[in-house]
Amino acid sequence: MGLTPDAMLRKLQDHLRDYLSLPVRITGNMPVPERSFERSRNQYNSTRILREILRETPADAIKIVGIIDKDLCIPILTFVFGEAQLGGMASIVSIARLRQEFHGLSPDDGILFERLCKEALHELGHNFGLIHCHDRECVMYLSNTVMDVDRKLSIYCESCDAALYGKTEPWRM
């Protein structure tokens, strides 16, 4: 959303397809909904964006993940890395806080890509009905900080993987 499909998105497409064995495609660029902007906080309301994504979802989509370069929040929380409908259709991931430069460090595309993969797998997991996992290394572990994101691996733990495998069955390639 608000991004031109670049090399990183295409790499993400390949990664998700290979890892999940599901067909993955990149939709056209969707503008960031203006209504989602929270002026007083200079952030974007992820719940409002999710609603917009749902409206634009192609009929044949299994699930849809929005990737955005804006800092996201919900009214009660200072920020969120992303948001998903549990067992639902749509989710969103923000790369704003996944960037090294957000934390005062030099940009690093490698690190950014790894974090993006983790958060995309995480939100997709929610869409397929997985809840947060107690295993700190599982990609479904709740990340409240970028350190949490870095600590976990970019894969599901055994039990989350088994649950996900069952849920993706009808569409697996």
């Binding site: 992820s46 409002r48 009214p75 409908q85 549990l86 809840i131």
Partner: peptide, 13 residues
Amino acid sequence: IVRESLANWLEED
């Protein structure tokens, strides 16, 4: 919007 977002966030947990 508060209800929906907070519910989403808690359900993920």
